[in-house]
């Protein structure tokens, strides 16, 4: 890449270069979107465990929830578009994508389960039951998602390093 052309932008091979970071971020966006979507469809609509509105919900929880609700839809659409773009550039790193999805979904679920449900006092996971097992399952599952996601992301990074080490 020692072309002396001064007007050229920094060398950017357009196709086929693995775009690991972008794959991971696309995954994170999709993950947040999926978690928000599951929260909405499964727990609000299908199981009716969550309530649409609690009379006691403080304003800050409503704002936080509204923000994540709106961001969730936007994130899943943009994440999918980013994946489509990674494919048209032949730069999709699958492991980074899946790692990103798991980490993103886990992070959102953990935030929802700790900050929104507990600290801010948004609606609870379920009503008229002992909440402890629900809260534990919810948050432990979130941590597991984050952990598996992190392992995959590290694996993707190492895979790239060894690949570049081989090629150089």
């Amino acid at each position: 890449m020692a072309t002396p052309a001064a007007s050229q932008p920094p060398a950017q091979p357009s196709r086929g270069r693995p775009l690991r970071a972008r794959s991971a971020w696309s995954g994170a966006l999709i993950g947040v979107g999926i978690a928000a979507f599951v929260d909405e469809t499964v727990f609000h609509q299908l199981l009716h465990w969550h309530h649409f509105y609690d009379r006691s919900t403080p304003g800050v929880a409503l704002v936080s929830d509204g923000l994540f609700h709106a961001f969730g839809w936007f994130a899943v659409v943009i994440g999918l578009v980013l994946v489509a773009d990674l494919r048209q550039r032949a730069g999709l790193v699958r492991r980074a994508l899946v790692g990103g999805i798991l980490a993103g979904a886990g992070a959102f679920q953990l935030y929802d389960g700790t900050v929104q449900h507990k600290l801010m006092g948004l609606h609870q996971i379920r009503y008229h039951v002992d909440l402890v097992p629900y809260d534990l399952t919810w948050n432990v599952l979130a941590v597991v998602f984050i952990g598996v996601g992190a392992v995959l992301l590290r694996g993707a990074a190492r895979g790239l390093n060894s690949a570049s080490a081989q090629s150089s």
Binding site: L62, V63, L67, H69, A70
Partner: peptide, 9 residues
């Protein structure tokens, strides 16, 4: 996103 959030709230 901001408008969507304000709308949802």
């Amino acid at each position: 996103v901001g408008a969507g959030a304000a709308h949802a709230v």
